[in-house]
Simulated assay, not measured.
Amino acid sequence: MRYTNLGRSGLKVSRLGLGTMNFGWQLGEDDSHAILDRALAEGINFVDTADMYGARDYEGTSEAYIGSWFARTGRRDEVVLATKVYQPMGDGPNDRGLSARHIVAACEASLRRLGTDRIDLYQMHHVDRGTPWEEIWQAMDVLVAQGKVLYVGSSNFAGWHLAGAQAAAIRRHSLGLVSEQLKYSLMTRHVELEVVPAAQALGIGLLPWSPLAQGVLSGALRKHREGAAGRTTSHTAARVLEHRELLERYEGLCDDLGLHPAVVALAWLLGRPGVTAPIVGPRTPDQLDLALVALETTLGDDAESRLNELFPPVGNGGPGPEAWAW
């Protein structure tokens, strides 16, 4: 396993992150623990969750499963633990968002479910346009001062949100954001216009979620043709049919390269500027194998060129304003 700094921080994380959104929704506690066991055995030290992940509303099942795994194994100190705040965790008007009240309450609830005294990376799950940055950073600074949060990150922010958040943090003499978790894959390249260059300029590490486009880039067309289960959500099945011709060409390219489609998609992301660690969400321990192969795979210039032809960047490519202007 290779490790790298999380953004401009001194924190070392594995080049792959283990996403646990399936914990509680698609996987029971024992299966979730098995995946955690396998991930750490392979050197993955970065585990990502969120307070709202899980099978039942407002119960934080994914966090609870991770907490019970810590209690069973005693391996908390081996993990860089990331969770998120923003989504509704109750029916009340203050049970959501990024108000100081909700940030502090949500952090305390996450700590209880996770069975730990600290969150290594506390991520804002979405931008809250109704709460000023000064209030958000006040709450985060309190949690950092108490040792309950060590680093702060964001998710699903626009480039100008990253800039605004950092400017407010600087005014408070705070470290600010060290990471941005963003939707980024061969099929979703909009972030290259402004989010990626903003993050690079500000020293914010990129953590792509849905790196396989909800399974569409994992050989889904072949699985669909063969009747294999795959990620058989109606949404994924619809996208496979919608992009059939594109996926046929993509999977043909992967055959030419002698590589599994999931390996190609992850290897491409791992080679993108500013990317710290794609977040992968396996449903079985064995599904980690393909992700690990991607770590040792380098795509040549010809493969990169062919991928750009299949999945062209937005506009002229690269950051704005050059991507849309002369």
Rank of each mutant, 00 (worst) to 15 (best):
R225D: 14
L193T: 09
L295A: 08
Q287M: 13
G320H: 08
A167G: 15
R101P: 00
G43A: 06
A198M: 14
L27K: 07
R222G: 12
M187I: 07
S154R: 04
V275L: 08
A106W: 00
G90Y: 07
W69M: 10
H235V: 13
R249H: 11
E134G: 14
R129Y: 15
T20G: 08
K84S: 04
M1E: 04
H260T: 09
V275P: 11
G176S: 02
P282E: 04
Y250T: 09
A169Y: 02
H224W: 10
V152M: 00
P261Y: 02
E108T: 01
V191E: 13
C107M: 08
T236S: 11
T4K: 12
I35R: 11
E296R: 15
S9R: 06
Q166G: 08
V195M: 05
S9W: 03
G252Q: 14
A198D: 02
G19P: 07
G215P: 09
V149K: 04
W137I: 04
P197Y: 01
G54N: 11
G271P: 11
L299M: 12
G203K: 02
P273V: 03
R15G: 08
V191G: 08
G164A: 10
S32R: 01
V127N: 13
D286L: 12
T236A: 13
E251M: 12
H173R: 15
S234E: 14
L241V: 15
P273R: 03
L212C: 08
